[in-house]
Simulated scan of single mutants.
Amino acid sequence: MAKITNVRTDLYRVPLATRLSDSTHGDMDDFELIVVRVTDADGATGMGYTYTVNAGGHAVARMVDPYLSDVLVGEDADRIEALWQKMWWHLHYAGRGGHVTSAISAVDIALWDLKGRRLGQPLWRVFGGFDPQVPVYAGGIDLQFSVPQLLAQADAFQEQGFRAIKMKVGRDELRDDIMRVAAMREHLGDGFPLMVDANMRWSADRAIAAARELRAFDLVWLEEPVIPDDLPGQARVLASGGLPVAAGENLHTLYEFRAAIDAGAVTYPEPDVSNCGGMTVFRKIGSLAEAHNLPVTSHGVHDLTVHCLAAAPNRTYMEAHGFSLEPYLAETMPIVDGSVTAPERPGHGLDLDFEKLAALRV
C-alpha cells in the first residue's frame, strides 16, 4: 500500500509573453497556477496542477489545503477512484463544480502521476494505450489582434508545426468577425482546418445568425456560442446554425456533459482535465462521448491532456493553449507536422522548474 504522507499546495501568478484577449474575459496578462504535490511513504511524489483566469486561485488552493489534504493523508494513494469519491463527497455541499472540481482535478492528476511513476509507465499506457500520436491545434486567444497580427500569428503557428488553428470571434459587430474569419481563410487556403471560438458571447438567435454566415468558411467547429447554462439554446444553434459545435471548458462535472449530450447541444465534447475532475473524469467523459458516437476534443493544459487523448479511440484534435508552461518545464512536447507524441517518461512526464517558479509564488 502506497500511503499518502503529505499534500503540498503552491499558488503562482504566471505572466504571459503576449497580452491575450477574448470576448468575455477581456485582456489577460497573466494566469494563476495552483500546483499540488502528493508524496507517499516511500518518498515518491506525483504532481498535478490547475489554473484560473483573472481570479479565484486562492479559493482553489484553500480547497486543497486544508480541506482535501486533511482527508487524503494516511490513505492508500493507489485507490484513486475511491479517493476521488471521498474528495467529491467531502466538498459536495461546497460546490459540486467550479473551484471544487478544479481543486479535485489538481489532486487527481497528482495521484495518477504518482501511480505512473511508481509503475515506471507513462499514463497513456496505464490508461490502455490507443495511439501516442495525437493531432493538435493552436488555440489563439486573439480577439483584439489586428488582422495583420492575426495573420502573422497564423504564420508563426505553422512554423511551430501546427496544421490546425483556432481563432476568436465575438466582437461587437458581427461584420468584423466575418471579415476577420474571411481574411484567415484566404490566408490559410482551402482545406486548412480552422475553428472559431465565441467564448459564450452570443444569445442563441445571434449565434444562429453568426453560424449561418460563418458556414461559408468551411470551419471545423464553432466553439461555445452561448453560455453553458443555455443548453436548449445551444441545441438550437447546433440544429439551425449549420456548423458543428464544440463546448465543455465551462462544464465542470460528468453530469453536466451528460446533460449537454442528452440535449443534443454538442458535437465535440471539450473537457478541460484541470477543471472537470481530473484524469479520472476526463476519461469518463471520453467514454460517454464514445458511447454516443461523438469525437472528444480538449481544452487547455495540453501537456497533461495528451495522455488522456492518446488512450481514447474517439479522440480528435487536442488544443495547445495560450496559457503555456513551456518556460517552466524541463522537457516539452515537440509539434511535428500537426501532431504531438505522448511521452514515454513515467507518469505524465512533466517536471516543473520550481526554482524558476519561486519568484512567481503568491
Rank of each mutant, 00 (worst) to 15 (best):
K3C: 05
I4E: 12
V7D: 07
R8Q: 15
D10P: 08
L11D: 02
V14K: 15
P15Q: 08
L16M: 11
L16Y: 05
R19A: 15
D22K: 00
M28C: 12
M28L: 12
L33Q: 01
V38I: 10
T39N: 00
D42G: 10
G43F: 00
A44G: 05
M47E: 15
M47H: 03
N54P: 00
H58E: 12
L68D: 09
L68Y: 15
V73D: 05
D76R: 13
D76E: 12
D78S: 14
R79V: 00
E81F: 00
Q85V: 03
L91H: 10
H92P: 04
Y93N: 04
A94N: 14
G95Q: 07
R96D: 13
G97D: 06
G97R: 04
G98F: 03
G98A: 13
T101Y: 01
A103E: 13
A103N: 07
A103G: 09
I104D: 07
L111D: 06
D113K: 12
W124R: 13
W124E: 06
G128S: 03
D131F: 02
P135C: 04
S146C: 11
P148H: 02
L151Q: 10
A152K: 08
Q153E: 10
A154P: 01
D155R: 11
G161H: 03
R163C: 04
A164H: 14
M167L: 14
R171V: 07
E173H: 15
L174H: 07
I178Q: 04
R180P: 05
V181S: 08
R185Q: 05
D190S: 00
V196C: 00
D197I: 00
N199L: 01
N199P: 00
R201M: 03
R201H: 06
R201N: 05
A204P: 01
R206W: 04
A207P: 05
A210T: 03
E223N: 11
E223M: 03
E223R: 13
I227P: 01
L231W: 02
L231A: 06
G233P: 04
Q234G: 04
Q234W: 02
R236K: 15
S240R: 13
S240Q: 15
L243S: 00
G248W: 03
L251D: 08
L251R: 13
H252N: 02
F257S: 10
A263V: 12
G264M: 06
G264K: 07
G264S: 04
V266K: 09
V266M: 10
T267L: 11
P269N: 11
E270F: 02
D272F: 13
N275M: 04
K284E: 13
S287M: 13
S287N: 14
L288P: 11
A289V: 03
E290D: 05
A291V: 07
S298T: 03
H299Q: 09
G300A: 13
V301D: 05
L304H: 01
T305R: 02
A310P: 05
G322S: 09
P327I: 14
L329E: 06
E331H: 15
P334T: 09
V340N: 08
T341N: 07
P343Y: 09
G349A: 15
G349I: 13
L352Y: 08
D353R: 05
F354G: 10
E355N: 07
E355A: 02
K356E: 06
A359G: 12
L360C: 14
